[in-house]
Every structure is written in C-alpha cells, then in structure tokens.
C-alpha cells in the first residue's frame, strides 16, 4: 500500500475528528461525512490497491487477469458510499431542522431532551 495514501487517509481522519469535535451543528455533520469518506478509503486501501486495470473482463477473455484490481473491496466501498450518502442526507436535514426549529447552532446547547439540572441532587422534571 502506498505510503502517500496512508498519510492522506490519516490526515483526513484527523481533520474529520477536528470537525466532529466542533461546537457547530453543520461542522459536526460535515466532519462525520469527511470521516466517512476516509473510512471508505480505509476499506478500499485494505485490499492494497496499486494497479490501474479495472475489474472488468475484457472482450474475448473469460476471466479477470491476475493484475486486475480486487473487485470485492470496490463492491464493499460502493455499498458503503451509498449508505453513507443516505445517512448524510438524513443528517443534513436533521441539522437543518434543529437549527430552524430550535434556532440553535451550538451542539452543546441542545437541552430540550436533557435540560440542565438546577437542584443539587435531583434531575430536572421533563415536561413530557
């Protein structure tokens, strides 16, 4: 596996973590998306890609040449990309809803479900 790819993935992961730890709803979601892309690359890289030959059987041939890329991780990554995209769409809408409905961009101030305590030992009463 190429060192350059490993480095790129690692940097993307680090940047993704930074974004995920942000206080902003939107940044957090984007961070998860970046982490998702990086994870897809990890799965892809796990098969140690390197060649250029796609996993398509040439006309006339009956099977893949030995130098062709491993098709299985590609299929897995494709599935993962699609799933990740579906979740990202949901998350973007969820974030938009939170911001519009609650007017809160700060992920640390989402307190409707978990209001801050005022009593020294007892939790606040949730009104349903």
């Amino acid at each position: 596996m190429s060192l350059i790819l490993m480095l790129a993935i690692s940097i993307a992961v680090a940047a993704g973590v930074l974004l995920v730890l942000s206080r902003d709803v939107f940044r957090l979601i984007v961070g998860l998306a970046v982490l998702g892309s990086a994870t897809n690359l990890i799965v892809f890289a796990a098969a140690r890609p390197g060649g250029l030959i796609p996993a398509v059987i040439e006309a006339g041939a009956t099977q893949l040449p030995a130098a062709a890329a491993n098709p299985l991780p590609q299929a897995l990554v494709l599935t993962a990309i699609v799933i990740g995209f579906a979740l990202l769409c949901f998350a973007l809408v969820l974030g938009a809803y939170l911001v519009r409905q609650g007017g809160q961009q700060n992920v640390d101030r989402l307190a409707a479900a978990e209001p801050a305590a005022t009593d020294p030992v007892k939790p606040p009463v949730l009104e349903q």
Binding site: A12, S37, L41, L52, P54, A68, A69, Q74
Partner: peptide, 17 residues
C-alpha cells in the same frame, strides 16, 4: 475529499467507484 477519492479510484482500477 470526495472528488479526491474519486480521482484516486479512477487511477486505482476502480472506475465504478
């Protein structure tokens, strides 16, 4: 990040990806 991965896929024998 996505486009970068796409380019990578293209040059790593994964046109579908």
């Amino acid at each position: 990040v996505g486009y970068g991965s796409a380019v990578l896929f293209l040059f790593a024998g994964a046109p579908d990806l």
